[in-house]
Design a protein around this nucleic acid. Sequence first.
DNA 1: ATACCAGTGCTTGTATGCCAGTTGCGACGA
DNA 2: TCGTCGCAACTGGCATACAAGCACTGGTAT
Lengths: 243, 243
Amino acid sequence: MADDTRSGGPLLSARDRTLDTLRRAVITLELKPGAPLSENELAAELAVSRTPVRESLILLREEGLVEVYPQVGSFVSLVDPERVAQAQFIREAVECTSLAQARPPFSPEHIADLRSNLQTQLDAEAAGDHDRFFELDEEFHRALLALAGHESAWGTVNAAKAHLDRARRLSLIDTRPMGVLAEQHTQVVDAIEAGDLDDAVRALRSHLRAVFEDVERIRAVSPEYFSDGRPRRPVRRSVSSLR
Amino acid sequence: MADDTRSGGPLLSARDRTLDTLRRAVITLELKPGAPLSENELAAELAVSRTPVRESLILLREEGLVEVYPQVGSFVSLVDPERVAQAQFIREAVECTSLAQARPPFSPEHIADLRSNLQTQLDAEAAGDHDRFFELDEEFHRALLALAGHESAWGTVNAAKAHLDRARRLSLIDTRPMGVLAEQHTQVVDAIEAGDLDDAVRALRSHLRAVFEDVERIRAVSPEYFSDGRPRRPVRRSVSSLR
DNA sequence: ATACCAGTGCTTGTATGCCAGTTGCGACGA
DNA sequence: TCGTCGCAACTGGCATACAAGCACTGGTAT
């Protein structure tokens, strides 16, 4: 099918677009944990061939977001508490170590960025915009890394964060936080501006752990999205209704 | 059930074998930094089609070991000092935090494992077996994570370690260490057994940083394997002579 | 009623063909 | 001699065809 209208130009490759779409769908729970995937179905829905879809699934498998059983099927990974704990540990280790290694004086722009982000967080909370809040949360933590000159470590943190994010999104939907999270963020920045890095690290660690504990809370409510360490039972059927 | 009796079958898929071969070749410098790769060439040499090769390259690209320029060519990544520093930071953060969170009493088997590993390291050093020493080094650091119950974080550390490993391998070949490294390893275990975790973390951090500094030393000797942050210069030609 | 067995349709894995884009080099002209 | 242009070869991205294998279903024999 060599039609492919000459619309301006392919800013991104089909694989990049597919990967982005799928990853977003998995993290936002548009594709639910345990949901069956099919290379052919996804290819048809996204109007590409199996190749970009398949390559995207391979990448997502590497990130732990998808499980592939040869000759059987591919599935969105269940939220694995073990893996969530691992992600939590890595994130805490990297972010807190980074912040602890930060040395004043801090660039005024960095501080301004953080403050501006905090205010926008409050706006998003007032608007009840979860998606926007999540974006801001990412930017916030990324900015914290940048503050200490370790922004390049963001990729690793972000990868580890994938499982956490899915669980967090569940907890945000089923409960309330947001305002609480923004408050914790504010405490971190306040401590930084006050020049008390030890306190900042303490606040950050406390914040990260609070997020982690949310996961256990939500697990009690929606156990069907969690893995109990048992072997998976691959079952097909059902459509993905993506996009 | 009853499946395992597959004696002569392909225990691993073509992609798994290809990925393993290529990754090993890159890390061991059998494929040198900057070397041009070709999906077609590699497929021919490994006696598989482009598909497994291509998928392997995509994975290695994600690990930062390979760079792919569409319509131009694929190349083994140069050692990027920035990325090496990032890997160093992540590794130090994760390993030291893990060790700091370890709580006595420690399982006698874990201690025995570490001691046994240390002795084998000395043997490998005496035999001048670099490859073996590298394997033992990996096992050692992995065992350290296990000691604190964070073995599951090994995957992340290992991924970050890729760039470090290439540089370290260079430094081991061109200089002497090994004995020094084993000595530093011993200091860590000694401190652990003495129950002084703070001292153990100090020794570990010192060890990791010494390794990192080796990178700068080797950079002065073999600058052609390092990236200077400049845009890459894609050049084709040349065979890979893989296996 | 139950256990078994083959058929069928799906799955992912692999191979291959085609395409647009880029590079390098040689031919040609000033 | 030097600069420029164009062609040929090669690149990776994508689509597609084929192969191997598992799982469910429905029929059959016990």
